[in-house]
Each structure stands twice: as C-alpha cells, then as structure tokens.
C-alpha cells in the first residue's frame, strides 16, 4: 500500500513514575492514508493523546518513553529519529493543533510573528514574504480583517478565532498530516460547527490528511472516514465511521454509543456502563474492559484478547468474535 502516509506498528509508550511503569499506550497499531480523516475516540485516560504526542515525539522524557514499536511516516520509521530530523518534520510535514487555543499561543508575540515563525524556519523566505503568507493563511481559515489581526495579540481574539489562528499556524507549511487533539472541545457548539467546517474544507482543498483525537462521537460522525476506538491504552475496535456508529462490535463501543443522550430520540432511561475507566498499570492480565462488560466470561479475565480482523479494515478486540459462528453459544454456556 503505497498511499499509506502514517503507520503505527505495535507502539508502546510507557511512563516511568514513582508508582511504577505505566503503559499509557500499550501496543497500538493503525494507519492513515494520504488525504484521509481518521478519528481516535476514547474517554479520558485511554491513551489517545499520548498516542498523538508520541507521533510528534513530544512526550516529556523523563518520565515518558517510547519503549517499543514503529512509527512509519512516508515509509520511514521516525520513532527513533534524532531531534534534528524531528525538527524538520514537525510543523513542516506533520503539524499539530491542541485543545486549548488559549494556552497554546504565546501571549507575548503577535499573531503574525507566531505564524511566521514556522514559515521562516522551514522555507526560504524573508520576513516580508512570511508576513504576506501569514495574512493569506489567516484569510484561508476565515478570519475577517486578516491584515489587522496579523498584528494583534492572542488576548484580543475570541476562543474560536484563536483556534482558527492555531489551524492557520499548523497549515503554514502545507503539512501532509494534521494531528488535531480535541480541537473543538473548548469551544461552543456554534463555533465548533464553524471549525469542523473549516477542517473539512482544508481536507478537501489541500488534501491534508487529518488525525482527529476526540471523545465526542458526534464530531466523529461529522468529519471522520475511519475510526479507531481506544480503551485503557489499547485499540479495541477499528472500522469506518459508519460501521463503528451503526454496527459497533466491541461491547465497550456498544456501551459508549448507547450511553449518549440522543437529541432526536425520546428515551426514558439512559444506558450506562457500570464502573469507571481502570487505572493503567503494568502486568494486568485479561481484557481491560472485562470488569465493566456485561458479556464477560471466565476467559476474559484470564487471557488478553487479540485484535481480530472481522472484515476489510475492520477489527475488534473481543473473544466474542473469535469464531464468528458459535461464539454466542459458548458465552451463553460459560455464563450459566
């Protein structure tokens, strides 16, 4: 597959803390094609942000470390790339936007300065050209009065505008991959709709691949083509957005979708997954979701389930699907 842009292969990112080694990302594999929008979904603490930071090599070290696995970007393993190599890639070929536009902009520099920094670093242009390019970028992301905003400071802009500036900054060098870590979580719904619209347009016009990290399944339905669902540091399910939302296989994904209040339906009682997300820790045996799973049987507590292929680019990590036929009976038996 030559059109694969980014491929993660059995990535392990561990944190070495006073409480021991914590496998925040525990063997994650997936890929992103050129021009594709892939979502990583999961609740807090599932390792979705650590995965994205690992790709950019932005994990604070110590305590964090990529202990195993490959990150292939355009066929090259960047998991062990040097700082110098990474600097060439970051901001140039892979760019990232963060959740909090308030804290990820420097309050002491003007908008033009901050966008221009990446351009000056990666391209052979002078300051004047960089400034002109910054203005064009601001126009691209739909900021009114771009000529004035370029000289303003972050505190003069609203949350939605700041997120637009972040996106402009990320798009400065026409990256092939944009990693967006909860880009709309801090924004209001009407502003969120604007930003999602903008990201969709950038994806279409510039063919930028987007890796979107989110906890909001609604956002996934809006913009993603494929989805990776994570739970406790592992991928539990993968498929197209439609497959995941309409026909979820893993009990966790099923529970997650059922526990959402639906705006267009009337229901009396919400489904809820019992218990809470487990604390990550090393040496746990069995399916991480088993203690909260209504289908769990003995084997789930004794063995780690493998990620099973159940179709074209369709995976799930659950014993229920091991032998597609007959597994229902097996689990009924073990329950009784």
């Amino acid at each position: 597959m030559s059109d694969v842009l980014l491929e993660l292969n059995n990535l392990h990112t561990h944190f070495f803390t006073d409480d021991g080694e914590i496998p925040a990302v525990d063997g994650v594999s997936f890929h992103v094609r050129k021009g594709e929008v892939v979502g990583i979904v999961g609740e807090s603490g599932c390792g979705k942000s650590v995965t994205s930071l690992s790709i950019m090599q932005l994990i604070p070290s110590p305590p964090g470390k990529i202990v195993d696995g490959e990150i292939n970007f355009k066929g090259e393993n960047i998991a062990k790339a040097s700082k110098k190599q990474m600097r060439k890639i970051r901001g140039n070929e892979i760019a990232m936007i963060f959740q909090e536009p308030m804290t990820s902009l420097n309050p002491l520099y003007s908008i033009g300065n901050q966008i221009g920094e990446a351009i000056l670093l990666h391209e052979k242009v002078n300051k004047k050209e960089a400034r002109q390019k910054s203005i064009n970028l601001l126009k691209l992301v739909g900021i009114p009065r771009a000529e004035a905003v370029v000289d303003e400071y972050p505190h003069q802009l609203s949350g939605g505008m700041r997120q637009r500036v972040m996106i402009a900054m990320a798009m400065a060098c026409d990256p092939e991959l944009l990693i967006a870590d909860e880009p709309t979580t801090a924004l209001d719904v009407t502003i969120q709709a604007q930003i999602l619209d903008l990201m969709r347009n950038l994806n279409k016009e510039k063919e930028t691949a987007i890796l979107l990290i989110t906890h909001d399944l609604g956002v996934v339905a809006e913009i993603c083509e494929r989805v990776v669902v994570m739970y406790a540091g592992k991928v539990v399910e993968e498929g197209t957005a439609k497959e995941i939302l309409k026909d979820p296989k893993h009990p966790y994904t099923q529970g997650l979708i059922r526990s959402l209040p639906k705006i267009h339906e009337k229901e009396q009682k919400l489904y809820s997954i019992p218990g809470t997300v487990p604390k990550p820790g090393k040496g746990k045996i069995g399916c991480r979701f088993a203690p909260r799973c209504e289908y769990a049987f003995d084997r789930c507590f004794q063995e780690d389930p493998k990620l099973l292929s159940i179709g074209n680019e369709r995976y799930t990590r659950c014993f229920l699907y091991e032998e597609n036929v007959g597994s229902e009976n097996d689990h009924a038996k073990s329950n009784s």
Partner: peptide
C-alpha cells in the same frame, strides 16, 4: 444552535445553519 450539534449518526441529514462570527 440545534442544527450545529454534531449527531453521532453518519446518515443524519445535515442542513446546518452555520452562524457567522462570535
């Protein structure tokens, strides 16, 4: 406001009213 809410249903019709400005 109602049209801006992302719905976790890929088949949902999307006739979204996107408001200008803040």
């Amino acid at each position: 406001l109602l049209s801006a809410v992302p719905v976790p249903d890929p088949d949902a019709e999307k006739d979204r009213i996107i408001l200008e400005g803040d």
